[in-house]
Amino acid sequence: MTLTLTVPPGAKVRVRITNENGETTEIEVEPGETVTITLPAGSTVRVEVEVVDPDGRKRTETFTLKP
């Protein structure tokens, strides 16, 4: 399973991925970048995406991906 994120110009994104064992991976994606994350097959993962807009506003979306 893959997750692809494209960050709009001016925004910053931090992604936290937590697996079933509670292990967390965190990455930051710079403005204008596209990143593809390969998620472990057969695992349920929690993905938290934090977006910081150019004006400093933050918003966070959290979702769970199941196999």
Rank of each mutant, 00 (worst) to 15 (best):
V51Q: 02
L65G: 00
N21E: 06
K58M: 03
L3S: 04
E20I: 04
A41M: 11
N19R: 07
E28M: 04
K58T: 09
R59K: 02
V51E: 00
T4Y: 14
V52C: 04
V15L: 09
I17D: 03
V49Y: 01
R14V: 11
A11Y: 03
E20H: 09
G56Q: 00
T38R: 04
E20Y: 08
P31F: 09
G56P: 00
S43T: 08
R57S: 06
V35I: 05
T34A: 11
G22I: 12
V52L: 02
F63Y: 04
P67W: 15
R59I: 04
E48Y: 02
R46E: 05
I37Y: 07
S43N: 11
G42T: 14
T6Q: 10
G22M: 10
P54Q: 08
E23I: 11
V35G: 03
T44A: 08
K58A: 03
A11W: 07
I17E: 12
K66W: 15
P67K: 01
L65W: 15
A41S: 10
P8I: 13
L65T: 01
R14S: 12
G32L: 05
P40M: 13
R16W: 11
G42L: 09
P9K: 08
G10A: 12
T34D: 09
P54D: 02
R14N: 11
P31G: 09
T6K: 09
G56T: 00
D53Q: 04
V15A: 05
S43G: 11
A11L: 00
E26I: 04
R59D: 00
E20G: 07
P54I: 04
L65R: 00
K12S: 11
E30G: 03
E30K: 12
V29E: 12
D53N: 01
T44K: 02
P40A: 08
G42Y: 09
E33N: 08
D55P: 00
T34P: 12
E48W: 02
K66Q: 14
T25M: 05
E48V: 04
I27Y: 13
G56D: 00
E61S: 06
E61A: 14
T64P: 15
T2C: 15
P54M: 05
